[in-house]
C-alpha cells in the first residue's frame, strides 16, 4: 500500500504540490489527469525523490518516511520501492534492451548476471520484444523503446510503477502498443500511478481517476462517475476542453 500524506513541494517558494493526500491500495490502477503545470509529474517525481519534497509523510509498503528528515538510505529505499517510466523513455543508450532491463537487478539488487539476464528475457517475452534482446535503443522505434522502459520498471518489482506521460512523446502510430502493454499490466493487477492525457485509457483501465489542478487534488473517483458526473466546476471545465477534440472519447 502507498500512502501519501500532506505532501508539499515548492519551486523557488511557489508551491507546486500544496498538501497532497492520496492512498493507493495494492493492485490499484490510478490515473492522474489535469491541466499542464499543475504538479502531476512533480507528484510522481517526489515519490521516488527525483525531486526532494519539502514536507509530508510517505508510506511505501513497509517503508515510512518523513520527507523532511529523509536520509540518503531512506531515499535509496524509496527508489527501490517505486519504479519510474519516463515520458522520453530514458533508456541507457550504451546498453541493449536486455541489459537495460537487467541493469537494476545486477547493480541494485546484486543478482548474479545469469539470473538477471534470465529474468530480463522473461520480461522481454512478456512485453513482446524477445527478438530485440540484443538491440540497442538507437535501433528501436519509439514504441519499442517505451516498452523496454516499462520492462525495466517491471523488473524492479516495486510497490508501484509510476508512469509519467508515457505516450506523450510517441508518434501516434506507436501509442497503441504502449497502451496495450499498460492494459496488460493492469489486468495482472500491477499497482500503477499513471499521469496521462489519454482519456480513453483512464476510462477503460483506471480503478480511480484523480483530477489535479494548482497543486491540489480537486476531485477523485471511479472513471464512470468522474467522467460522467464531475462535481467540481474545474473538473467539468477541464473535461469539456480535453474531450472536445476527441471523437467519441466516452
Amino acid at each position: 500500500m502507498i500512502e501519501i500524506a500532506n505532501l508539499v513541494k515548492r519551486f523557488d517558494g511557489t508551491p507546486v504540490l500544496d498538501g497532497i493526500d492520496l492512498t493507493i491500495e495494492r493492485g490499484e490502477i490510478i490515473v492522474v489527469i489535469g491541466p499542464s503545470g499543475t504538479g502531476k509529474s512533480t507528484l510522481l517525481r517526489c515519490l521516488n525523490f527525483l525531486e526532494r519534497p519539502d514536507a509530508g509523510k510517505l508510506t511505501l509498503g513497509d517503508l515510512q518516511i518523513d520527507v523532511t528528515r529523509a536520509s540518503r538510505a531512506d531515499i535509496l529505499a524509496a527508489r527501490r520501492r517505486t519504479a519510474f517510466v519516463f515520458q522520453n523513455y530514458a533508456l541507457f543508450a550504451n546498453k541493449t534492451a536486455l541489459e537495460n532491463i537487467a541493469e537494476g537487478l545486477i547493480v541494485v539488487n546484486r543478482w548474479p548476471k545469469a539470473k538477471a539476464h534470465a529474468r530480463a528475457r522473461e520480461i522481454l517475452e512478456r512485453i513482446g520484444l524477445a527478438d530485440k534482446a540484443d538491440a540497442y535503443p538507437a535501433s528501436l522505434s519509439g514504441g519499442q523503446q517505451q516498452r523496454v522502459g516499462i520492462g525495466r520498471a517491471m523488473a524492479a518489482q516495486a510497490e508501484v510503477i509510476l508512469f509519467d506521460e508515457p505516450t506523450s512523446s510517441l508518434d501516434p502510430e506507436w501509442v497503441e502498443e504502449v497502451l496495450a502493454l499498460m492494459k496488460q499490466l493492469a489486468t495482472e493487477r500491477q499497482t500503477m500511478l499513471v499521469v496521462t492525457h489519454e482519456m480513453g485509457f483512464a476510462q477503460d483501465v483506471a480503478d480511480r481517476v484523480v483530477f489535479m489542478e494548482g497543486g491540489h487534488i480537486v476531485e477523485q473517483g471511479p472513471p464512470s462517475r468522474l467522467f460522467n458526473a464531475p462535481e467540481d466546476p474545474r473538473t467539468r471545465d477541464f473535461l469539456r476542453k480535453v474531450l472536445a477534440g476527441q471523437p467519441k472519447a466516452l
Binding site: N48, L50, L76, R79, R80, T82, A83, F84, F86, N88, A90, L91, F92, A93, E103, G104, V107, V108, R152, A156
Partner: peptide, 18 residues
C-alpha cells in the same frame, strides 16, 4: 550525457558512484 538517463539510473536505486 543525456540528463534523463541519469534520472533513470537514480530512479531504479543506483548510487551516484554506480
Amino acid at each position: 550525457v543525456d540528463r534523463s538517463q541519469t534520472e533513470a539510473a537514480l530512479s531504479i536505486g543506483m548510487t551516484n558512484g554506480q
